[in-house]
Simulated assay, not measured.
Amino acid sequence: MSRKEMVRPGGRSARVQASVHAAVRELMSELGRDGLTVPLVAHRAGVTPSTIYRRWGDLQELLSDVAVERLRPETAPQDHGNLRADLTAWAEQFLDEMASPPGRAYIRDALLGDPDGGNAGRCSAYAAEQADAMLARAIDRGEGAPGVEAVMDRVVAPMMYRILFRPAGLDAAYARRLVAELLDAGAGSGR
């Protein structure tokens, strides 16, 4: 089994992962990212450096794993009564969190320690799961709804591109515009 397949381990493995992740977060807040080393993290977590190397390979892969876990949404998207309100509120929050300095750092770390693309896939799956929850709710209410891939292509992808490559001018109005364009295009197509 590869290191990337160990997403949600149980027992001792889960305790090691939790203590190492906590150590990384604590040390980053105390020393900054540049001050981190595998021996420091191991000491703080109460494990040997070889445990970290065996499980994560190197510091960058560890930072990437921590970042992916931090990018995982903690709650389901809020229900605001209709798809437009749900998707708009979610997109505004997503943009605000991901475009923040910590959000951008987590995105960079998630991608830097990801030679096989697994972390990018996990992060994408988090957003798709959130979109799917909102779309399912809309369908249950009898609303028309685009597909998950349309939300990913028309809302999430442009925001991520702008966050990574053209962050100037990103604000809630941009997120609202993307959602409106997606939903208004669907309304005009007779769905």
Rank of each mutant, 00 (worst) to 15 (best):
D184R: 03
V156K: 08
F165D: 11
I107G: 00
R141C: 02
G118A: 11
M98H: 14
R54Y: 09
I107K: 03
D34N: 15
D140I: 00
V38G: 04
T48N: 08
Y53G: 02
M6K: 14
E143A: 10
A14E: 07
V38N: 04
D79W: 11
G11F: 12
A187S: 07
G118L: 08
G81F: 02
I107C: 00
R108N: 00
E30H: 04
K4L: 13
M152S: 11
C123S: 10
A133V: 11
A23E: 05
V68I: 09
I107N: 02
D140R: 14
T51Q: 14
V155S: 08
Y174G: 00
F165R: 10
A145G: 03
A136D: 12
D153K: 15
Y174L: 09
V148D: 06
H80C: 05
P146A: 10
W90R: 07
L87V: 04
R108E: 04
E143L: 05
R55P: 01
D34M: 15
R25N: 04
S19Y: 04
D140N: 07
D140Y: 05
M28T: 15
Q130D: 07
E69R: 13
P102W: 02
M160F: 09
L40H: 12
S124G: 13
R176W: 05
G144L: 06
G35Y: 12
E30A: 08
L183Q: 03
M160I: 14
R141M: 03
A18L: 07
G144N: 09
E92Y: 03
L95Q: 03
K4N: 12
R162T: 04
I139G: 07
W90H: 08
S50W: 10
M28H: 12
A67L: 06
D140M: 04
P158V: 09
M6N: 13
A91W: 04
L178W: 06
Q78M: 13
V148Q: 11
V41N: 09
P77Y: 13
A67S: 10
R104L: 07
G11C: 09
G57D: 10
G118P: 02
E5R: 15
R166F: 03
I139R: 15
Q17F: 01
E5N: 14
R33A: 12
G113Y: 07
P101Y: 05
E143Q: 10
A89V: 08
M160H: 11
A120H: 05
E69M: 04
D34L: 15
G142I: 01
V20G: 02
A175G: 03
A133P: 00
V151T: 11
A145R: 05
E5Q: 15
